[in-house]
Design a protein around this nucleic acid. Structure first.
Length: 470
RNA sequence: GGUGGUAUAGCCAAGUGGUAAGGCAGAGGUCUGCAAAACCUUCAUCGUCGGUUCGAAUCCGAUUACCACCUCCA
């Protein structure tokens, strides 16, 4: 029984999709005015991992993730770069796709852009006005937060408390136009020179929250299973989405709200964000950090926990990954002299580990316990691969189990490369001969020489083998 | 000020009542001509104080520290 932690109820709940076997999920994507930072990557990795686990468990997943390609930041950045807003969007959507591909994030079923749904947004806003949940003022349209009875339920905030907080920001002219400081914009009138679309309220652009209400319901229906994003989106973004969507449809918007924790950076353990200026882009990181290591590091931290991004943690992840790859190689090496058939007892042990894996992963995607089971598969595989007699069926079964479980984390193990260099092969042959003659001086010399070329030699009961390394 | 979260070994990190998973690092060992890889063994009483209980990391109260949200942000 799969359980997920629902932000709405602050509890783990049994996950029951609306349609058996099918998961509909919407993940808030980035505003595409820059390269994504590692916080964006964390969110994308966390929910990609969750998606992969659903798929591993046999669900079909409809995964929708948007691009916010028009808002104040987009307009500002486009102006700064001297390009249009659509050009800016194109540029960083392309960069997003490159970065996420490097991190082995599965492409979404649909990646809608806000600007592709302007007409629907206008209709949606008009509907809210017709229902008296919204009102136009001087080219803007605002939502009456107080009118929506459930406002604040997701974030567990009270409107009265919000007003106090909002009171610190009442100075700006936008607030002056609102009936109430907690009201939020559905549509923003354009200032001269800004990108805009015609609407019944004049030329303008969508407010931030409305696009997600429109696109999520457009692709997934008025009600869908999972809506996800960073925990900073709980308020106001997701709260406002609920208010908009449920006011319009009169139906429950989303069954399960999932939110990922932050990435922290540096000694202060401080939240990393674009606004704090302490962010690191994936684009830059991947110049020096192995993408798969970063993926493994983030995917094996439970999505609700904070992640401390540090070199030390990355190094540990790299070693862990190497260990798993080595286990895979160790088993692959024995495939050469394995006998046909299976070892039923070992197969059974592997199946037990897989059962444990699903057990812990079913508990709100407890990847830390999940990866512990993966290490157990690796250990078992290493032990098995050292047996004098091994069976190919069992070796393959363990190897496949290892790759299957790891692919949930978005990690792909590599088959050992074939040695293509004749000189190196000759040296290895010479060393084997030297060892037979107990000429260890020469044999160690060759081993050292190859090590300097990045080839590590290992003598096993089945003969000498090599691998790349340092 | 309001709300929520976190505090477990050198590091990362599981664990919601019964004598602390896992990984990295460290130590010892097996294997090896020596290595490497692997395997085995070993390494904490759970921020502080108090309470409940036969028994608490796990429940309650207090306290300290850190983080986040209340404003754009994954």
């Amino acid at each position: 029984m799969l359980k997920v932690f629902n932000t709405m109820t602050r509890q783990k709940e049994t996950f029951e999709p609306m349609t058996p076997g099918v998961v509909t999920m919407y993940v808030c994507g980035p505003t595409v005015y820059n390269y994504i930072h590692i916080g964006n990557a964390r969110s994308a990795i966390a929910f990609d991992t969750i998606r992969r686990y659903f798929e591993y468990r046999g669900f079909k997943v409809k995964y929708v993730s948007n691009f916010t390609d028009v808002d104040d930041k987009m307009i500002k950045q486009a102006k700064k770069l001297g390009i249009t807003v659509p050009e800016l969007g194109d540029r960083f959507i392309k960069a997003f796709k490159e970065d996420t591909a490097a991190l082995n994030i599965e492409p979404a079923t649909v990646n809608p852009r806000a600007t592709e749904h302007i007409n629907e947004i206008i209709e949606f806003v008009q509907d809210l006005i017709d229902k008296d949940y919204a009102y136009p003022v001087d080219g803007d349209v605002y939502y009456r937060a107080h009118k929506f009875a459930h406002y604040g339920e997701l974030s567990h905030l009270k409107l009265d408390d919000l007003e106090e907080g909002a009171s610190q920001h009442t100075a700006d002219e936008e607030t002056a136009r609102k009936e109430d400081p907690v009201d939020f914009a559905l549509w923003k009138g354009a200032k001269p020179g800004e990108i805009s679309w015609p609407s019944p309220w004049g030329a303008g652009r969508p407010g931030w929250h409305i696009e997600c209400s429109v696109m999520s319901t457009h692709y997934l229906g008025d009600t869908f299973d999972i809506h996800a994003g960073g925990e900073d989106l709980v308020f106001p973004h997701h709260e406002n989405e609920i208010a908009q969507s449920e006011a319009k449809t009169g139906k429950t918007f989303v069954h399960y709200w999932l939110h990922n924790g932050f990435v922290t950076v540096g000694d202060e353990n401080e939240k990393m964000s674009k606004s704090l200026g302490n962010f690191v882009t994936v684009h830059d990181i991947l110049k020096t950090v192995d993408a798969q290591t970063l993926r493994f590091f983030m995917a094996t931290t439970q999505y609700r926990r904070p992640i401390q991004y540090s070199q030390r943690n990355l190094d540990t992840a790299a070693r862990n990954l190497e260990r798993l790859q080595t286990a895979y190689d160790n088993m692959g090496y024995r495939l050469k002299d394995a006998e046909g058939g299976h070892d039923p007892k070992t197969d059974q042990e592997v199946r037990q580990i897989v059962a444990n894996y699903m057990d812990v992963m079913d508990d709100d995607f407890n990847v830390q316990n999940g990866v512990a089971e993966v290490y157990e598969v690796a250990r078992l595989g290493n032990v098995y691969a050292e047996r004098p007699v091994v069976f190919a069926g069992t070796l393959s079964f363990i190897r496949k189990t290892l790759t299957d479980l790891l692919s949930v984390f978005g990690v792909e193990l590599q088959e050992a490369a074939e040695l293509a260099d004749q000189d190196i092969e000759d040296l290895i042959a010479e060393r084997i001969a030297a060892r037979k003659n107990k000429d260890f001086l020469r044999s160690d010399e060759i081993r050292e020489q190859l090590k300097n070329q990045g080839i590590i030699l290992e003598d096993t009961p089945q003969g000498t083998r090599w691998r790349k390394g340092n």
